[in-house]
Each structure stands twice: as C-alpha cells, then as structure tokens.
Design a binder for these strands. Structure first.
Lengths: 340, 340
DNA sequence: CGTATTACCTGAACCGGTTCAGTAGTCCCA
DNA sequence: TGGGACTACTGAACCGGTTCAGGTAATACG
C-alpha cells in the first residue's frame, strides 16, 4: 500500500530501473525470465505506474477531451448526448484512454479557451469536436494549437480527406423521410430545422428540399433552435400564419422540437396524425412515449460516439487521417404518421 | 507556438527557473516587478505550465474521477445523470479541476477495478461516489486505497461525520408525497421503489410506510429496478394481482418507471388520474410531456451534483470531512394526481 | 559601526517514469 | 582463434515542473 515506484521494484529484484521499465512495457531488452519476475512482483504489490510520471516522460497525456457546448438546460434534457457519451467512453476505455469532460454554456469563446488551455497544458492528446458549423473556426484553431481532433459530422471532402471525422449521409436520411411522407400522400410539408449554422442542418435542408421537389411536394422551411419551446412556436406559426394552406406533415430536427410541435397541435385543437403528421429527425424515449408516438429517424448515437472515438484513437496512434461514414439511419414508423 | 518551458521563460528573462515558478504560483520570494514580468511574458507567449510535469512534482493529479455504473441503456435514457453531471462539471471547473468520466456496466467488479487503477496510477485526486448501497463495500475500499471520496446520498451519521457526503431528507420527501395523496383522499396506495440495495430506497420505503401509517393509509410495496418495463410490470401486477383491492394511487421511484406505469394503465383500459393516480419521485421532461402530465418530486439534480463536487473540492483542499444536506425537494403537482 | 534580519534570487535535488548509449557475455562461423 | 552479431542488462540523461537550502545585498537595530 505504501506507494511503490519503479526504483523500488528494481531494488527488490536487484535489477535496474531500465530493465523494469522495459519489462513492463513489453519492450525487447529483457529476458523472459526477468520479465515474468517483474510482472509478477508488480501484480503482487498491486503496483501501477504513475500516470503523471508516464505522461511527462512520454509527452502523452493518456486522455482525450470533449467540450459539450450547449445550453445547460438542453444538455440536461437532450438524451442524444448521453448516448453519444456512452459510446465514446466505451471505445476510449478499450483503448486505455481517459475521457476529460468539460461542459460550457453555448459560448464559442469558452470552448476556444478550453482548447487553448488543454493544448498549452498538454492535458489531452486530442479532442472530439461536435456539431460542425458553417465556417467553423475550430478546425483552424486546433490545427494551430497542434491538437489532433476528430470532427463528428464532418463534411465529406473527398479523398484523401483533409481532416479526420465521421460523416453521415444527410441526403439519404432526407430521402428516407420524404419518401415516407410521399407514400403517406402528403403534398404540403414543413421542415423545422435547427440553426443553419450547423452544417448538417444545411445539408438536411437541402436534402429535403431537393427530394421533395422531385416528388412534386411543396416544402416550407422554418428555422428553430432545438428547444421544446421553439418547436411549439414553429408549429403554431406554420398552422396559423396561413401561407398557401398549412402543411399536412411537419419534420422536426430533433425529438424535443417534435414534442413541442405535438403540444402545439393539442393546444390548437388539431389531431395528429389526422390533421398534421409529425416526424422527428432523432429518435429517443420521448418519441416512443408521446401520444401519439412519433415516427422518428433512429441515428444510434451510441454507435456514432463509438466510431468517433475510434477514429481519434487511430489518429493518435498512427497519425492516419480518415473519415468514416455512419451506418445509415433507420426510420421507425409510429403513430404520428399512420392515420387510423 | 514552439512548446515553451519554464526554463525557456527563465532564460528569456535572465532569471532562474525557481523565480519563474514562484512568480507564477503567487508565492513569496519574488519582487512585484519580477512577478509582473514573468506573468506578462507567459501571457504574451500563450504559455501554460505542463499539467503532467506539475502533477508529477506536486503529486496531485488535478482531476477527480467519477464512475457511472449503470446499464448502458439506463444511462442513455435517464435524464437525472445528465443534470447531475452538468452540476458537477460546473463546480469542478470553478475549482480548476478536471473531470474524468468512466462508464461501466452495472458491475461492481469493474467499478472496483477502476478505483484501484486510478489510485495506483494516481490519476485522480479523489472520486465522487453515487447511489450508496446497503453494506456498501466502496467506502472501505477507497479508504484502503487512500483515495478521498464524497458519497452522494450518504447516511446522516451524526457529528462529526465519519465520511464526506451529501444527505437528503428522504423522510421529508416521503411525507410530502404521502400528504399530497392523503389530501387527494387516497386510502390505498402502492409504492414502487428501486432496488432495496440502495440505501436511499430503504429510507424512502420506511418514510412512506411510516407516514402512511400515521394517516391511516394502507401502503403496498413493490420492488422494481428503475427501468421503464419494470414500472409497467409493477403497475400491471398491482392492478391485476388483486390483493385487498387495487391501489388508487401509485408512487414510482423514478420518472421512467412512472412512464411505464402510465403505459400499463393505458393497456389495462384504466384512466389516470380517475382510476389510478401517479406520482414520480423524480421530475424530468418525461413527467411534463406525458399525458396526463405526471406529478413529481423535483430534486434538482444539477444542484445535487454541484454540492457533491464542492464537498469533494473542499475535502481535497482542506481535508475537512463534512456532510451537507440537500435543499428539500419540491412537489410539482400536475394532472396525474388532479382528478378533473 | 558591526551584526541580525529581511527581501530577493539561485543552483540543485526531486517527483517517477522512459530511453539512449554503452558494457558484458554468449554464440556462431570462417 | 578471432571478430561480428546478438542478447541481456545498466548508468545516466531527460521530461518540465516544484521546492529546499543556501547566498547576496539591502535594510534595521542596538
């Protein structure tokens, strides 16, 4: 229990520190016999190498960082993040990396300051970046800081890729959704997206617009901010601010907004799906529990986190910059688009 | 951008490493002039001290750990954890501590191994422990490992407290709930709790039983496991396995089980609250969105996390073992207990 | 005026690992 | 028999901070 050190182990075994180190790290330069003796002793003493000493001499922190930059309110209610986190942690644990988590209010300056600090202190070996923005300043910043990173939801920039990241086929997702609505006979739909500063929203908007055009469906776009209330407001606006007739179906950018939309319908005395159908771009327990239950695109956040983390690990390990596309999302059809 | 070191700064300024270190850490032994020069240069160069070097020489990791030990499925759906995390992170950030997060399946051996590893590697300065168990082996383990910890939901062990932790007044919470049901005229209620291995569940069960007895209310207890399905099963059992008449109100140990209960009622063709009222021991968006919306005890997980983290910080800082009781929970009355 | 005190500063040791250059010893083969 | 190659091992430097035990020089005191 007294804190042993490598020097201590060496003395006990009558060999040098160097040999102990080689033995522990599976490096050549020691006989099998010596290696066994070292490993056995380490186990017997329940000894582990000091992470800080190791980090110092290897100039490697043994940890990756992740800044969750969102409204504290949203963080607490958005199940997507938890799933993502779980996936990330699982992958990192397998690669023997620790996860440093930092939550900041939606404030670019704070996120930036965190990266600068982490890079300066060499506290993390790399970071996971989420929600790629239009003209995102973060890749350039991280590049300048020399901090390796993986961009979750990166643009597909051809090969070889310019930066490491995961890509999702938003066009295919859009098509899945629009096809489903088309099959349901909808001719006037609305798309309530998150902020267009997010690159993936831009792609989704385009995807929906183009696919709808091909099917001769009129689509109205409304920009909101992922919060429950903004979904409610969007729906109210779409129904009451009568442009050329209200939509018969509304696609929401996440589950919370979908819930808001549902509430708005109830307040307006309209029925879902009979009067207005609803689709959520994100599945979660909320969609299952709502009444009516909400048709949703299941994106498997756990898997996404896992893949992103694996990319980062291999980037740190081999320096290999690569992108990986997410497995296609699956549409879970529920009552909100199935007229009775 | 070239990675500066303390030696580099010292050379530039023509002074010794020691002086630079003293200046940076606000320690005596340098003139105000020198201190300013050092700080200015550090800022100009965007220099930060290497965390691993600092950790090594101070023998302090600058991080605290937290093991989230739960079903991956539950972690992803249970909003309580996210709120807790957000609170913890906020407090830690203010104290300049990093948060190391580790998620493991509900497996005591893995949690134990994580603590042993962290202690051995001196990777964290302390840990946050959640969900105090009956005969919890963790305090003794952490004591043996010499790892300071704060127990969230510790028993109130008089003064001076034996270990650092937060306490909640489960008796008062129980009373709040039972009073509300009593006022609603309920005479036969059921309490669907989480596993009794959790100390707080034990206290809740006792609290509900005793308070109900004082009011002449009959209470039936059912042990479940926090999952949606178990709530559903519990409700089904309570209604159909007719003991002396089904309850007119059911208290669920968390929000997920409450949702399950609601689903079961729907399946059984019963109406809430007219046939059976529901109260959740945990508030969340689910309770607000459900139809009917569910009366819930709001426990403010963010605040709880914050307090726990602050306790740990002060324990690490001053070594002071203390307990702090959580601000009382508040009952948010909604439709599920308000007959129309 | 001599000495004790203080303020400021420095060289060197230290934290606990990794790693490089170098030293024996062994084996092999011409 | 001698030398090249290989294996097993070691001492010491190094990573980048912190901290301790002095050492000046200036100031205070009797």
């Amino acid at each position: 229990m007294a804190k042993e050190t490598i020097a201590g182990l060496a003395k006990r075994l009558g060999i040098s520190k160097a040999s102990v180190s080689y033995a522990l790290n599976g490096q050549p330069g020691v006989s099998e016999l010596t290696r066994r003796r070292v490993l056995d002793l380490a186990e017997e003493l329940e000894w582990y190498p000091s992470s800080s000493a190791r980090a110092l001499s290897r100039s490697r922190a043994g940890a990756v960082g992740m800044v969750l930059s969102a409204d504290p309110l949203l963080i607490g209610t958005e199940p997507y993040y938890m799933g993502l986190l779980a996936g990330i942690e699982t992958a990192l644990a397998e690669g023997d990396m620790a996860l440093l988590l930092r939550m900041v209010a939606k404030d670019p300056a704070q996120e930036r300051a965190t990266y600068e600090r982490w890079a300066g202190e060499r506290k993390v070996d790399g970071v996971l970046v989420f929600d790629h923005l239009h003209d995102d300043p973060r890749p350039a910043l991280l590049e300048r800081l020399g901090l390796p990173f993986v961009l979750h939801g990166a643009p597909d920039t051809g090969s070889p890729p310019a930066l490491s990241g995961t890509t999702a086929d938003h066009g295919a997702d859009s098509a899945t959704i629009v096809h489903h609505l088309d099959a349901g006979g909808h001719r006037r739909i609305a798309h309530v997206s998150g902020p267009q500063t997010f690159l993936h929203e831009e792609e989704r908007i385009r995807g929906v617009r183009e696919c709808a055009a091909r099917h001769g469906i009129r689509v109205e776009h409304y920009e909101a901010d992922y919060a429950l209330e903004s979904g409610r407001k969007a729906m109210t606006h779409l129904i009451t601010a009568g442009s050329a007739g209200p939509p018969t179906a509304v696609v929401f950018g996440n589950d919370l907004m979908s819930m808001g939309g549902l509430l708005a319908l109830r307040d307006l005395g309209l029925r879902c799906p009979d009067d207005v159908a609803i689709i959520s771009w994100d599945d979660s327990l909320h969609c299952q529990l709502a009444s009516p239950s909400v048709t949703a695109l299941s994106r498997n956040p756990g898997m996404q986190g896992r893949v992103a983390a694996e990319l980062l690990l291999s980037l740190l390990d081999t320096g290999e910059v690569q992108t990986r596309s997410m497995p296609g999302s699956e549409l879970v059809v529920r009552s909100s688009t199935s007229p009775t």
